[in-house]
Write a protein that binds this DNA or RNA. Structure first.
Length: 414
RNA sequence: GCUGGAAUCGUGUAGUGGCAAUCACAGGAGACUGUAAAUCUCCCGCCUUUCGGCUCCGUAGGUUCGAGUCCUACUUCCAGCA
């Protein structure tokens, strides 16, 4: 039987959920744990694919919602799939558009994000907002395009059809991501709907794969997406429900706070089938996210924060995050981080990147993005190595104490 | 020299009698987690942690209850004409 995806475990870290392994797709392998690079609109903003390869990126995640708006899935399908379209011949993921149900809905223009608990005033207004661009029904979600206001209706079946045309190696089920301010009643309702949608996604996905099989095309893989927000019983219910169905792997969605990773991810990963890969959707803006995710059984991450923050001047160093646009860096002729092996750090100074970003020169976006993406990709690579070498906890302690300082690091080390 | 016009926070500007000043840029800082994002937020005359106080629209006078806004002189700049 032809498989769309296989996952093999190399090493399980005793007494934890952490493991290393290999995800095998028609476009090659991903050594896990791995950081998947965010390439929403079939491009990693400001970087070309050679730069992604050089900084160690193994795989890119694109977004079906954005690509259906522009350029349209037909274009991508005609191009031979998103990998061919963007000249990336290695593994790809596609996200379903489920996140946009949230970001263009409850969160639209309201500044709700993972740190929203500090801005509850704004977020509470969003509940009554009439400006959101989505309307959710049991059948699917009505969107109004933020590009031109045109209407779009996405059902689980439509999401799968679009994702199959985009033809990434690994798809996500179309899900409903609830606001951090949603109450338990609504979270349950949204989770049940997400489960129903997951069954519809799986069913349509299997039909589409049958067509690929008949035509001799590569099979595509589908991950079920666990929801349930911060509710332990719901998360476990969701993991049980989806774990009992024949998905190729699992996404864990709706995680908003770094503190939720160690609890939520553990609840879920103690239940999900051990032999299938688990992807933590959208988390990885800071090193603690990566260490905690892996420790509690995450195999792959994706997060747009490294590139977005790079474009805005927030750069990682092993001694903590710096804002390269600050005046103090104007005459700092050292690399962004002297221990970093990225192209930017090998060739350019802080003063130069400072100058480029302040001058709105486009090269600045590229150099900063190369560095930040290398930092997170390389960190997950080092985490994988530390598990294989049996010194994960030493590495975690050393890294986090240096990055956050011994006091702040304590939260992540217990 | 004559005739007009103009002088407002580092820069360019808004403001034409009312509780002392708009916007942008520059500058200072912060945020960003399945990308609505090369975006957003805050500060930006002086003192004060805040409350608040002081000062302020080229200079000096004047009119007025009240002047960046009206009048006079001066200074500087701009344009045109000599």
């Amino acid at each position: 039987m032809k498989k769309s995806l296989t996952f093999s475990i190399n090493k399980q870290l005793d007494g934890t959920l952490a493991r290393t392994g290999v995800v095998k797709t028609p476009h090659g392998i991903i050594e896990t744990p791995a950081f998947i690079v965010g390439g929403t609109k079939a491009t990693v903003k400001s970087l070309n694919v050679e730069q992604i390869s050089e900084l160690g990126g193994q795989s890119i995640l694109v977004n079906a919602y954005h690509l259906m708006l522009r350029p349209g899935v037909g274009v991508i399908n005609t191009a031979g799939g998103v990998g061919k379209f963007m000249n990336w011949d290695r593994p790809t993921f596609s996200d379903s558009g489920g996140f946009q149900v949230f970001s263009l809905g409850m969160a639209y223009k309201k500044g709700i994000n993972v740190t929203s608990h500090s801005r509850k005033g704004d977020a509470a207004q969003a509940v009554h907002s009439k400006t959101q661009l989505t309307k959710i029904t049991d059948d699917g979600v009505h969107f109004r395009s933020e590009l031109d206001g045109s209407k779009l209706f996405i059902t689980p079946e439509i999401s799968m059809e679009f994702q199959h045309k985009i033809a990434a190696d690994i798809h996500m089920c179309f899900d409903e991501l609830t606001s951090p301010l949603a109450g338990p009643g609504y979270i349950k309702q949204a989770m049940d709907r997400t489960h129903s949608w997951a069954e519809r996604c799986l069913s349509r996905h299997n039909e589409l794969n049958d067509e690929h099989l008949a035509e001799g095309d590569d099979l595509q893989a589908l991950y079920g997406v666990v929801q349930g927000a911060r509710e332990e019983n719901l998360r476990k219910e969701s993991a049980t429900f989806l774990g009992n169905r024949d998905f190729d792997g699992y996404g864990i969605g709706g995680v908003f706070e770094p503190e939720e990773i160690s609890s939520t991810v553990r609840w879920v990963n103690e239940i999900l089938p051990i032999d299938r890969p688990r992807h933590l959707l959208g988390m990885g803006a800071q090193p603690a996210d990566l260490f905690l995710g892996v420790e509690y059984g995450i195999d792959t991450f994706d997060c747009v924060a490294p590139t977005r923050q790079a474009r805005n001047g927030a750069l990682f160093t092993y001694d903590g995050r710096i804002n390269i646009k600050n005046s103090g860096y104007s005459t700092d002729f050292s690399p962004i981080d002297s221990n970093c092996d990225c192209y930017t750090c090998r060739n350019y100074t802080r003063a130069y990147v400072h100058h480029l970003l302040r001058s709105n020169e486009i090269l600045g976006l590229t150099l900063a993005s190369i560095h930040n993406e290398r930092f997170v990709v390389g960190t997950v690579d080092n985490i994988r190595k530390s598990i294989n070498d049996g010194n994960f906890f030493d590495y975690k302690k050393e890294f986090l104490e240096r990055y956050y300082g011994p006091d702040r690091a304590k939260v992540f080390l217990d």
